[in-house]
């Protein structure tokens, strides 16, 4: 009953950073339940060669479902494989990352297993042998404490909230070929991928986010933010307010807020964003919030840890310059 299954993610054969967070959070839950962590990796043949990394974060064994038809994400196929893996173990909890993929996959697994699911969990505890999860509701205007009346407890964790801590365990790879996977029954085919070239990193998963709003004045000015993002390094991604997205300055995939993405990076920059309640809904659980706005009364300053009042077109290039200087000295 006490083992925990950590469903991890790969893209193009590389294990994604969120996986370490899921395994690490699973290790915490497994300690409370008195079991160990099994990671489950689904991918193409040869995937198991990468299993060892998950051992570093606490996975006792890494079950690797290898099949070429599953090298890329296919919801039905993945859901079937994960559900089968859950059935074949004795799990007290099954955990996903609340990434774009995890949010698509976890509900399907839940339906296949007839188990309720708590999405986007931000804190976890084990009380008297049961999992208790905390998760934001009403776009972060309240936090709910949730208990499960079914086992195993199914949940997805919000990226960047749980720290990936090193806790070396065996990490033994157990590759297997999943049974009964039939791509012809999926009814969905990927036809095309149109690269936009806009930041390869998803704003919901980046550990630093630089967001721009209407104060940016137009899409041609985004170079200012790109420069800041680049100075911050490869963990940084661009975000946007709805005003910037509605004006077609930026793609909706970058929108932060109630009708966009919920983000919780270590560091969030709100540049030329007033701080409407629907925007704050998407970023208020960020670690440190910085606001740059020319209006000292902008509501964003009420949630910002640090603010600079001024014209963003002066302030942001200066910030980028200072950060580059800081990094050069490291």
């Amino acid at each position: 009953m006490g083992d925990v299954l950590a469903v991890v993610e790969q893209r193009e054969g590389t294990i994604r950073g969120i996986s370490n967070e899921v395994v690490s959070a699973a290790a915490g839950v497994a300690a409370g339940l008195g079991g160990s962590v099994h990671a489950l990796l689904v991918g193409g043949t040869g995937m198991s060669s990468q299993a060892a990394v998950l051992g570093r974060f606490g996975a006792e064994k890494v079950r690797v479902a290898e099949m070429d038809a599953l090298s890329g994400y296919h919801p039905q196929g993945y859901a079937q494989v994960v559900a089968d893996a859950v059935r074949s173990g004795d799990y007290g909890a099954v955990m996903f990352g609340a990434t774009a993929q995890g949010k698509d996959l976890a509900p399907r697994v839940a339906a296949l297993l007839d188990l309720p699911l708590a999405s986007d969990v931000t804190s976890l505890e084990v009380e008297d042998g049961s999992v208790v999860a905390e998760r934001p509701v009403f776009a972060g205007k309240a936090f709910s404490t949730i208990t499960f009346q079914a086992s195993p407890a199914l949940l997805s964790i919000r990226p960047n909230v749980f720290q990936a801590e090193e806790a070396p365990a065996e990490g033994t790879a157990e590759p297997y070929a999943p049974d009964g996977v039939d791509p012809s029954s999926w009814g969905v085919r990927v036809m095309e991928f149109q690269a936009t070239g806009s930041g390869a990193k998803d704003v919901a998963e980046a550990s630093i986010v630089v967001s721009g709003g209407r104060g940016m004045k137009g899409p041609e000015n985004w170079g200012v933010l790109e420069e800041l993002r680049d100075a911050l390094g490869s963990d940084a991604a661009l975000g946007a307010s709805r005003a910037a997205v509605d004006a077609d300055w930026r793609p909706h995939s970058e929108q932060v807020g109630q009708t966009g993405k919920t983000v919780a990076p270590k560091l969030y920059f709100a540049v030329g964003i007033s701080g409407a309640i629907q925007h704050m809904a998407g970023m208020r659980t960020s670690g440190t919030i910085v606001a740059v706005n020319k209006d000292p009364d902008a509501p964003i300053f009420q949630v910002a840890d640090y603010g600079i009042v001024g014209d963003l077109f002066d302030v942001v290039p200066a910030l980028a310059e200072e950060i580059r200087a800081l990094k050069a000295g490291d």
């Binding site: 300053f301 009420q302 603010g307 600079i308 200066a318 950060i323």
Partner: peptide
């Protein structure tokens, strides 16, 4: 939170 200051001059202090 706090307002660190005004304009580009305070960028260094913020960093």
């Amino acid at each position: 939170g706090r307002i660190v200051g005004e304009g580009a001059e305070v960028a260094g202090e913020l960093v």
